[in-house]
Amino acid sequence: MLATFAAYGKSENLPSETDSVETSFTNPVWDGADPWMVKQGNDYVYCFSNNNGIAVSSSKIMTQRNEAEYIWKAPASGWNSNCVWAPEIHFIGGHWYVYYAAGVSGPPFIHQRAGVLRSVNDNVYSDYKDMGMLNTGDNPEDVSENIWAIDMTVMKLKGNLYAIWSGWLEQMDTDATSQHLFIQEMENPYTLKGKRVLLSSPEESWETGGPLNLNEGPQVLKHDDQVFIIYSCRESWLKEYRQGMLQLKDSDADPLDPESWIKTGPVFEGNDSVHGVGHVSFVKSPDGTEDWIIYHTKKTTEPGWDRDVRMQPFTWNADGTPDFGDAVKAGKPLKRPSGEVEIEQN
Protein backbone atom coordinates (compact mmCIF):
# COMPACT_ATOMS: atom_id res chain seq x y z
CA MET A 1 0.00 0.00 0.00
CA LEU A 2 1.34 3.41 -0.94
CA ALA A 3 1.67 6.04 1.76
CA THR A 4 -0.89 8.83 1.62
CA PHE A 5 -0.86 12.36 2.93
CA ALA A 6 -3.21 15.29 2.79
CA ALA A 7 -2.69 17.98 0.17
CA TYR A 8 -1.80 21.38 1.55
CA GLY A 9 -2.78 24.89 0.61
CA LYS A 10 -6.17 24.28 -0.99
CA SER A 11 -7.90 27.39 -2.31
CA GLU A 12 -9.22 29.21 0.70
CA ASN A 13 -12.57 30.13 -0.84
CA LEU A 14 -13.52 26.67 -2.06
CA PRO A 15 -16.80 25.76 -0.37
CA SER A 16 -17.46 23.36 2.44
CA GLU A 17 -20.34 20.91 2.15
CA THR A 18 -22.69 23.45 3.69
CA ASP A 19 -21.62 26.47 1.64
CA SER A 20 -22.90 27.56 -1.73
CA VAL A 21 -20.48 26.94 -4.59
CA GLU A 22 -18.01 29.78 -5.06
CA THR A 23 -17.53 31.04 -8.61
CA SER A 24 -14.07 32.53 -8.05
CA PHE A 25 -10.73 31.65 -6.47
CA THR A 26 -7.55 33.48 -5.58
CA ASN A 27 -3.86 32.76 -6.05
CA PRO A 28 -1.76 31.19 -4.70
CA VAL A 29 -3.62 27.88 -4.70
CA TRP A 30 -1.05 25.95 -2.61
CA ASP A 31 2.57 25.84 -1.55
CA GLY A 32 5.15 24.15 -3.76
CA ALA A 33 7.40 24.54 -6.75
CA ASP A 34 7.93 23.18 -10.28
CA PRO A 35 4.20 22.47 -10.71
CA TRP A 36 3.33 19.72 -13.19
CA MET A 37 -0.35 19.23 -13.94
CA VAL A 38 -1.76 17.18 -16.81
CA LYS A 39 -5.33 16.44 -17.81
CA GLN A 40 -6.10 12.79 -18.59
CA GLY A 41 -9.73 12.18 -19.46
CA ASN A 42 -11.74 14.12 -16.89
CA ASP A 43 -9.02 14.06 -14.23
CA TYR A 44 -6.25 16.51 -13.40
CA VAL A 45 -3.15 14.63 -12.30
CA TYR A 46 -0.68 16.64 -10.24
CA CYS A 47 2.86 15.31 -9.76
CA PHE A 48 5.44 16.69 -7.33
CA SER A 49 8.50 15.78 -5.29
CA ASN A 50 8.25 15.51 -1.51
CA ASN A 51 10.62 14.17 1.16
CA ASN A 52 12.98 12.62 -1.39
CA GLY A 53 10.11 10.89 -3.17
CA ILE A 54 7.50 11.47 -5.86
CA ALA A 55 3.78 11.79 -5.20
CA VAL A 56 0.68 12.23 -7.34
CA SER A 57 -2.87 13.36 -6.73
CA SER A 58 -5.91 13.25 -8.98
CA SER A 59 -8.88 15.62 -9.00
CA LYS A 60 -11.67 16.61 -11.34
CA ILE A 61 -11.21 20.19 -10.13
CA MET A 62 -8.14 22.18 -11.21
CA THR A 63 -8.08 24.56 -8.28
CA GLN A 64 -8.25 21.87 -5.59
CA ARG A 65 -5.72 19.12 -4.89
CA ASN A 66 -7.03 15.90 -3.47
CA GLU A 67 -5.12 13.63 -1.11
CA ALA A 68 -1.84 12.53 -2.67
CA GLU A 69 -0.02 9.21 -2.64
CA TYR A 70 3.65 8.41 -2.95
CA ILE A 71 4.33 6.39 -6.06
CA TRP A 72 8.09 6.17 -5.52
CA LYS A 73 10.68 6.79 -2.83
CA ALA A 74 14.37 7.26 -3.58
CA PRO A 75 16.53 4.21 -2.78
CA ALA A 76 18.92 4.24 0.17
CA SER A 77 21.93 4.30 -2.14
CA GLY A 78 22.80 4.76 -5.80
CA TRP A 79 22.79 7.49 -8.42
CA ASN A 80 19.20 8.59 -7.62
CA SER A 81 19.26 8.35 -3.81
CA ASN A 82 19.09 12.11 -3.15
CA CYS A 83 17.99 15.50 -4.48
CA VAL A 84 14.79 14.40 -6.22
CA TRP A 85 13.65 17.38 -8.30
CA ALA A 86 10.82 18.51 -10.58
CA PRO A 87 9.06 15.29 -11.68
CA GLU A 88 6.69 15.23 -14.64
CA ILE A 89 4.13 12.52 -15.41
CA HIS A 90 3.05 11.64 -18.97
CA PHE A 91 0.58 9.04 -20.24
CA ILE A 92 2.14 7.24 -23.24
CA GLY A 93 1.03 3.98 -24.82
CA GLY A 94 -1.10 2.79 -21.92
CA HIS A 95 1.45 3.52 -19.19
CA TRP A 96 2.32 6.50 -17.01
CA TYR A 97 5.94 7.64 -17.27
CA VAL A 98 7.52 9.89 -14.67
CA TYR A 99 10.62 11.87 -15.64
CA TYR A 100 12.62 13.30 -12.75
CA ALA A 101 16.07 14.53 -11.76
CA ALA A 102 18.11 13.10 -8.89
CA GLY A 103 21.69 12.69 -7.73
CA VAL A 104 23.83 10.59 -5.45
CA SER A 105 24.38 13.58 -3.15
CA GLY A 106 24.20 17.34 -2.86
CA PRO A 107 24.95 20.15 -2.34
CA PRO A 108 26.93 20.85 -4.38
CA PHE A 109 24.38 19.71 -6.95
CA ILE A 110 26.85 18.38 -9.48
CA HIS A 111 25.51 14.82 -9.75
CA GLN A 112 22.00 15.46 -11.11
CA ARG A 113 20.86 13.10 -13.87
CA ALA A 114 17.52 12.30 -15.52
CA GLY A 115 15.63 9.13 -14.61
CA VAL A 116 12.30 7.60 -15.61
CA LEU A 117 9.66 5.45 -13.89
CA ARG A 118 6.93 3.41 -15.64
CA SER A 119 3.57 2.36 -14.20
CA VAL A 120 2.69 -1.32 -14.41
CA ASN A 121 -0.74 -0.45 -15.87
CA ASP A 122 -2.88 2.55 -16.80
CA ASN A 123 -3.74 3.42 -13.19
CA VAL A 124 -1.80 6.48 -12.06
CA TYR A 125 -1.63 5.06 -8.52
CA SER A 126 -0.28 1.68 -9.62
CA ASP A 127 3.16 0.34 -8.78
CA TYR A 128 6.02 1.87 -10.75
CA LYS A 129 9.16 0.26 -12.14
CA ASP A 130 12.39 2.20 -12.09
CA MET A 131 13.54 2.19 -15.72
CA GLY A 132 16.89 3.71 -14.82
CA MET A 133 19.00 6.67 -15.79
CA LEU A 134 18.80 8.23 -19.25
CA ASN A 135 22.11 8.81 -21.03
CA THR A 136 22.11 12.57 -21.61
CA GLY A 137 25.79 12.75 -22.53
CA ASP A 138 27.54 12.92 -25.88
CA ASN A 139 28.50 9.23 -25.98
CA PRO A 140 25.39 7.04 -26.39
CA GLU A 141 27.50 3.92 -25.94
CA ASP A 142 28.94 4.81 -22.54
CA VAL A 143 26.69 5.92 -19.67
CA SER A 144 29.81 6.50 -17.55
CA GLU A 145 30.35 9.63 -19.64
CA ASN A 146 26.88 10.89 -18.83
CA ILE A 147 26.38 14.65 -18.31
CA TRP A 148 24.33 16.63 -15.79
CA ALA A 149 20.63 16.88 -16.69
CA ILE A 150 17.40 18.09 -15.04
CA ASP A 151 13.82 19.07 -15.97
CA MET A 152 13.25 16.48 -18.69
CA THR A 153 9.99 16.63 -20.62
CA VAL A 154 8.78 14.76 -23.70
CA MET A 155 7.25 15.94 -26.97
CA LYS A 156 5.11 13.87 -29.33
CA LEU A 157 5.37 15.14 -32.90
CA LYS A 158 4.28 13.38 -36.10
CA GLY A 159 4.54 9.92 -34.63
CA ASN A 160 7.96 10.52 -33.09
CA LEU A 161 8.89 11.06 -29.46
CA TYR A 162 11.52 13.55 -28.32
CA ALA A 163 13.13 14.31 -24.97
CA ILE A 164 13.89 17.93 -24.07
CA TRP A 165 15.85 18.87 -20.95
CA SER A 166 18.18 21.33 -19.26
CA GLY A 167 21.82 20.32 -19.09
CA TRP A 168 25.47 21.29 -19.11
CA LEU A 169 27.74 21.38 -22.14
CA GLU A 170 30.18 19.15 -20.24
CA GLN A 171 30.38 17.64 -16.78
CA MET A 172 31.75 20.11 -14.22
CA ASP A 173 32.82 20.02 -10.56
CA THR A 174 30.76 23.09 -9.64
CA ASP A 175 27.03 23.71 -9.83
CA ALA A 176 27.75 27.34 -10.69
CA THR A 177 27.57 26.24 -14.34
CA SER A 178 25.42 27.65 -17.12
CA GLN A 179 22.48 25.52 -18.25
CA HIS A 180 21.29 24.94 -21.81
CA LEU A 181 18.34 23.22 -23.47
CA PHE A 182 18.94 19.97 -25.35
CA ILE A 183 16.68 17.83 -27.52
CA GLN A 184 17.07 14.20 -28.58
CA GLU A 185 14.88 11.65 -30.33
CA MET A 186 13.63 8.73 -28.24
CA GLU A 187 13.57 5.08 -29.25
CA ASN A 188 10.84 4.53 -26.65
CA PRO A 189 9.67 6.46 -23.56
CA TYR A 190 12.64 5.26 -21.51
CA THR A 191 15.48 5.14 -24.08
CA LEU A 192 17.18 7.97 -25.96
CA LYS A 193 18.14 7.50 -29.61
CA GLY A 194 21.06 9.05 -31.48
CA LYS A 195 22.87 12.02 -29.95
CA ARG A 196 21.74 15.06 -28.04
CA VAL A 197 21.35 18.37 -29.89
CA LEU A 198 22.01 21.76 -28.32
CA LEU A 199 18.76 23.64 -28.82
CA SER A 200 19.07 26.86 -26.82
CA SER A 201 21.69 28.69 -24.78
CA PRO A 202 21.20 31.72 -22.51
CA GLU A 203 22.42 34.41 -24.86
CA GLU A 204 19.73 37.09 -25.17
CA SER A 205 19.74 40.19 -22.94
CA TRP A 206 16.48 39.12 -21.22
CA GLU A 207 17.86 35.66 -20.30
CA THR A 208 21.27 36.84 -19.01
CA GLY A 209 22.64 39.46 -16.66
CA GLY A 210 22.57 37.71 -13.31
CA PRO A 211 25.15 35.65 -11.42
CA LEU A 212 24.35 32.48 -13.41
CA ASN A 213 22.74 32.17 -16.84
CA LEU A 214 20.13 29.40 -17.09
CA ASN A 215 17.78 27.82 -19.61
CA GLU A 216 15.65 25.22 -17.80
CA GLY A 217 12.14 23.88 -17.18
CA PRO A 218 11.18 23.36 -20.87
CA GLN A 219 7.48 22.65 -21.50
CA VAL A 220 5.79 21.83 -24.80
CA LEU A 221 2.74 23.86 -25.84
CA LYS A 222 0.77 23.16 -29.02
CA HIS A 223 -1.93 25.23 -30.71
CA ASP A 224 -3.50 24.14 -34.00
CA ASP A 225 -0.44 23.19 -36.10
CA GLN A 226 2.02 25.36 -34.16
CA VAL A 227 4.53 23.99 -31.65
CA PHE A 228 6.19 25.96 -28.86
CA ILE A 229 8.66 25.26 -26.07
CA ILE A 230 8.12 27.57 -23.11
CA TYR A 231 11.14 27.57 -20.79
CA SER A 232 12.47 29.29 -17.69
CA CYS A 233 15.51 31.55 -17.71
CA ARG A 234 17.56 33.75 -15.41
CA GLU A 235 18.08 32.40 -11.87
CA SER A 236 15.42 30.27 -10.16
CA TRP A 237 16.21 31.75 -6.73
CA LEU A 238 15.85 35.39 -7.86
CA LYS A 239 12.81 37.57 -8.57
CA GLU A 240 13.95 37.97 -12.20
CA TYR A 241 13.13 34.33 -13.06
CA ARG A 242 10.99 34.45 -16.22
CA GLN A 243 9.76 32.58 -19.30
CA GLY A 244 11.18 32.50 -22.82
CA MET A 245 9.76 30.79 -25.90
CA LEU A 246 11.03 28.70 -28.79
CA GLN A 247 8.66 28.41 -31.77
CA LEU A 248 8.98 25.74 -34.45
CA LYS A 249 9.11 27.64 -37.76
CA ASP A 250 6.54 25.42 -39.46
CA SER A 251 4.89 22.04 -39.04
CA ASP A 252 7.33 20.37 -41.46
CA ALA A 253 10.49 21.75 -39.83
CA ASP A 254 12.94 19.30 -38.27
CA PRO A 255 12.75 19.73 -34.46
CA LEU A 256 16.30 18.34 -34.15
CA ASP A 257 17.66 21.27 -36.20
CA PRO A 258 18.28 24.31 -33.95
CA GLU A 259 17.67 26.53 -36.99
CA SER A 260 14.06 25.30 -37.03
CA TRP A 261 13.30 27.22 -33.84
CA ILE A 262 12.70 30.95 -33.30
CA LYS A 263 13.49 32.38 -29.87
CA THR A 264 11.31 35.10 -28.31
CA GLY A 265 11.11 36.57 -24.85
CA PRO A 266 10.33 37.22 -22.24
CA VAL A 267 6.81 35.92 -22.83
CA PHE A 268 5.77 35.73 -19.15
CA GLU A 269 7.45 37.44 -16.20
CA GLY A 270 6.87 38.95 -12.80
CA ASN A 271 5.89 42.48 -11.85
CA ASP A 272 5.75 44.69 -8.74
CA SER A 273 3.38 42.24 -7.05
CA VAL A 274 4.47 38.85 -8.43
CA HIS A 275 8.08 37.67 -8.31
CA GLY A 276 10.11 34.91 -9.95
CA VAL A 277 7.56 33.48 -12.39
CA GLY A 278 8.83 30.04 -13.33
CA HIS A 279 8.57 26.38 -14.34
CA VAL A 280 5.16 26.25 -15.98
CA SER A 281 2.76 23.59 -17.23
CA PHE A 282 -0.42 23.87 -19.31
CA VAL A 283 -3.91 22.36 -19.11
CA LYS A 284 -7.36 22.87 -20.59
CA SER A 285 -10.32 23.84 -18.39
CA PRO A 286 -12.74 21.03 -17.42
CA ASP A 287 -15.02 21.78 -20.39
CA GLY A 288 -12.08 22.18 -22.79
CA THR A 289 -12.86 25.78 -23.76
CA GLU A 290 -10.05 27.58 -21.91
CA ASP A 291 -6.25 27.34 -21.75
CA TRP A 292 -4.56 27.70 -18.36
CA ILE A 293 -0.96 28.19 -17.29
CA ILE A 294 0.19 26.65 -13.97
CA TYR A 295 3.34 28.22 -12.51
CA HIS A 296 5.26 28.93 -9.34
CA THR A 297 6.38 32.24 -7.87
CA LYS A 298 8.65 33.38 -5.07
CA LYS A 299 6.99 34.35 -1.81
CA THR A 300 9.39 37.26 -1.29
CA THR A 301 11.91 39.27 -3.28
CA GLU A 302 14.78 37.86 -1.21
CA PRO A 303 17.00 35.20 -2.86
CA GLY A 304 15.79 31.68 -2.10
CA TRP A 305 13.46 28.86 -3.04
CA ASP A 306 10.41 29.53 -0.84
CA ARG A 307 7.67 29.32 -3.48
CA ASP A 308 3.98 28.79 -4.10
CA VAL A 309 1.82 27.59 -6.99
CA ARG A 310 -0.55 29.74 -9.03
CA MET A 311 -2.75 29.39 -12.10
CA GLN A 312 -4.49 31.72 -14.53
CA PRO A 313 -6.09 31.56 -17.99
CA PHE A 314 -4.32 32.72 -21.14
CA THR A 315 -5.33 33.48 -24.71
CA TRP A 316 -3.86 33.39 -28.21
CA ASN A 317 -2.68 36.19 -30.49
CA ALA A 318 -3.89 36.56 -34.06
CA ASP A 319 -0.67 34.92 -35.32
CA GLY A 320 -1.30 31.83 -33.17
CA THR A 321 1.30 32.59 -30.50
CA PRO A 322 0.31 32.46 -26.81
CA ASP A 323 -0.57 35.62 -24.90
CA PHE A 324 0.02 34.89 -21.21
CA GLY A 325 -0.88 38.41 -20.09
CA ASP A 326 0.24 39.77 -16.73
CA ALA A 327 0.89 37.62 -13.68
CA VAL A 328 -2.12 38.19 -11.41
CA LYS A 329 -1.31 39.41 -7.92
CA ALA A 330 -2.13 37.32 -4.87
CA GLY A 331 -5.64 37.73 -3.49
CA LYS A 332 -7.22 39.09 -6.67
CA PRO A 333 -10.36 37.07 -7.49
CA LEU A 334 -10.22 35.01 -10.67
CA LYS A 335 -13.16 33.27 -12.30
CA ARG A 336 -12.87 29.53 -11.75
CA PRO A 337 -11.93 27.42 -14.79
CA SER A 338 -14.85 26.96 -17.17
CA GLY A 339 -16.90 23.91 -16.22
CA GLU A 340 -15.47 23.58 -12.71
CA VAL A 341 -18.45 25.08 -10.88
CA GLU A 342 -20.82 22.73 -12.71
CA ILE A 343 -18.76 19.71 -11.64
CA GLU A 344 -18.94 20.77 -8.01
CA GLN A 345 -22.67 21.47 -8.21
CA ASN A 346 -23.30 18.00 -9.56
Results as ranks from 00 to 15, higher is better:
Thr264Pro: 03
Asn42Cys: 06
Gly9Cys: 05
Trp261Asn: 08
Ile54Ser: 00
Leu198Asp: 05
Ser236Leu: 15
Tyr162Glu: 04
Lys60Arg: 14
Val21Glu: 00
Asn123Gln: 04
Leu2Pro: 14
Ser119Thr: 09
Ser16Val: 00
His95Cys: 10
Trp206Pro: 02
Thr18His: 04
Gly244Phe: 07
Gly167Thr: 02
Tyr125Asp: 07
Asp19Thr: 03
Asp173Glu: 11
Gly331Phe: 09
Glu185Pro: 01
Pro189Asp: 07
Thr289Ile: 03
Glu207Gln: 08
Leu199Asn: 02
Asp34Ala: 06
Tyr190Arg: 01
Asn121Gln: 00
Gly217Arg: 04
Gly270Ile: 07
Ala149Arg: 08
His223Ala: 08
Ser59Ala: 12
Gln219Ile: 13
Asp323His: 11
Ala330Leu: 12
Gly9Ile: 00
Asp34Arg: 08
Pro140Ser: 11
Pro202Thr: 09
Ser57Asn: 11
Ser273Pro: 08
Thr315Asn: 11
Ala6His: 00
Val277Leu: 08
Leu161Ser: 06
Asn346Gly: 02
Asp151Tyr: 01
Asn52Lys: 04
Ala102Phe: 10
Thr301Ile: 10
Ile294Trp: 11
Val29Pro: 03
Ile54Gln: 02
Asn42Ile: 03
Thr174Val: 13
Leu169His: 14
Glu22Gly: 13
Glu170Gln: 13
Thr208His: 00
Pro313Thr: 11
Thr177Met: 13
Asp138Phe: 13
Ala318Asp: 15
Pro303His: 11
Tyr44Glu: 10
Lys298His: 15
Pro218Ser: 01
Gln179Trp: 06
Asp175His: 07
Ile89Glu: 00
Val220Thr: 12
Asp142Gln: 02
Asn346Thr: 15
Asn66Pro: 04
Tyr241Asn: 07
Asp175Trp: 14
Asp252Leu: 13
Thr321Glu: 05
Phe91Gln: 09
Met245Arg: 02
Gly115Lys: 07
Gln247Asp: 04
Tyr8Ser: 15
Thr321Met: 10
Leu221Asp: 07
His111Ile: 05
Val283Asp: 05
Asn80Gln: 12
Pro15Tyr: 05
Gly278Glu: 12
Asp43Cys: 07
Tyr70Phe: 15
Pro286Ile: 04
Asn213Gly: 05
Lys298Ser: 14
Lys298Gly: 12
Tyr46Val: 15
Ile54Met: 13
Tyr70Met: 09
Thr177Ile: 08
Ser205His: 08
Ser166Gly: 05
Asn146Cys: 13
Trp96Glu: 11
Ala163Met: 02
Trp206Ser: 11
Ser16Glu: 08
His279Tyr: 12
Asp138Pro: 08
Leu199Arg: 03
Glu170Ile: 06
Leu248Met: 06
Pro258Asn: 03
Ile262Asp: 11
Arg234Val: 14
Asn139Tyr: 12
Pro266Leu: 11
Ala163Trp: 10
Lys239Trp: 06
Tyr231Lys: 00
Ala163Glu: 04
Ile343Phe: 05
Val45Lys: 00
Ile71Lys: 06
Val38Pro: 01
Gln345Val: 03
Asn271Lys: 11
Ala253Pro: 07
Pro87Ile: 08
Ser81Met: 12
Met311Asp: 02
Ser11Ile: 14
Ala327Leu: 13
Leu157Ala: 01
Glu340Ala: 07
Pro108Ile: 07
Val220Glu: 03
Pro266Thr: 13
Asn139Lys: 03
Gly217Phe: 03
Leu199Ala: 02
Val143His: 09
Val267Ala: 10
Cys233Thr: 10
